[in-house]
Design a protein around this nucleic acid. Structure first.
Length: 286
DNA sequence: CTCGCTGGAGACCTTAAACG
DNA sequence: CGTTTAAGGTCTCCAGCGAG
């Protein structure tokens, strides 16, 4: 497939970790996208809205947002937004996983044991903020051995998230691994024909489960409900077509499996935050 | 007239509870 | 671990409105 915009961040192979500040919303950042790297966003100032996998989060000063490898996301500003963005590759912790296999759990078990938006009332969040700021200071000064210091700070960050922000005990995740293979066959079917108007019954039949049971298991393993997942794929495709072609909105809607425009407009607006025509205008301004 | 968008009724999906 | 049931929420379709 590969029709949804996918960013390949230029992370150095030797040290795949970088920190930057985004003031307001950088146009490139503003588009719905995903990437294979892991991302930590820290709201230094102001307010904004984050759309992640079709869910809307309001973010305000002090909030920390984690984005895993497959989270479709898009941020925009509501007031004076300054975001510190820390991006890194999971390869950075390849060695650590030998003795600490759960070090990347905040990302690999996103939506199972962790939320994208970390609980702002958790007393441990202050320490996390400090670590992110320290990491950026190291990154800027690049004093001797800064890479080792940054990597240690990031490891501490992940460990503290693991320790203090988990919604469920560690054991619950391993039980879910069995269910993941069950979901895999269904995901494959969806991706082979994403435009099709899948019904819950059809998907449940592939998994040999009752619709309600299937829906629950899918949500547990994939992080979003079955039909919402299909919707995300189709919307991502529509954004791609709106931005890269001049075709009529009604044709794009039809190609992405929306049989009437009214429905397309409404669904699109709630998921993306702008109407289809606004998305297209946004492209032309750039 | 066409195109983009909104409102309402009904179909379908999601989720939790009760139970085998 | 699984099904059935039922309430509540979400999506789809159709009618209709305003702008160009």
């Amino acid at each position: 497939m590969g029709t949804i915009k996918r960013d390949w961040l230029d992370l150095s192979k030797s040290f795949p970790l970088q920190v930057s500040d985004n003031i307001g919303v950088v146009p490139d950042f503003n588009r719905l996208h995903w990437h294979d790297s892991l991302e930590i966003n820290y709201v230094k100032q102001g307010e904004g809205i984050y759309l992640i996998n079709g869910r809307t989060y309001t973010m305000r000063e002090g909030d920390i947002i984690l984005l895993g490898p497959n989270d479709l996301h898009r941020a925009f500003e509501t007031r004076d937004l300054v975001l510190q963005v820390t991006v890194f590759d999971s390869a950075l912790f390849a060695a650590d996983q030998r003795y600490e296999p759960d070090i990347l759990a905040p990302f690999t078990e996103m939506n199972i044991r962790f939320d994208n938006l970390l609980d702002r009332d958790n007393p441990a969040i202050g320490e996390l903020r400090g670590l992110l700021l320290d990491m950026q200071r190291e990154y800027r000064t690049r004093a001797d051995s800064y890479r080792a210091v940054m990597r240690a700070q990031l490891a501490r960050f992940l460990a503290y998230v693991n320790r203090n922000f988990s919604k469920a005990p560690v054991g619950s995740a391993s039980r879910l691994r069995g269910k993941q293979s069950l979901a895999r066959s269904v995901l494959q079917a969806i991706h082979e024909d994403p435009v099709r108007a899948w019904t819950l019954q059809e998907l449940a039949d592939i998994a040999h489960l009752s619709p309600s049971r299937f829906s629950a298991i899918f949500k547990q393993t994939v992080g979003t409900s079955p039909l919402n997942y299909c919707l995300q794929i189709r919307i991502g495709q529509a954004i791609q077509l709106l931005e890269s072609t001049e075709r009529k909105i009604i044709d794009i809607a039809a190609e992405c499996g929306f049989h009437n425009l009214s429905n397309f407009n409404r669904v699109f607006s709630t998921h993306v935050g702008r109407t289809p025509s606004q998305v297209r205008e946004g492209r032309q301004k750039q």
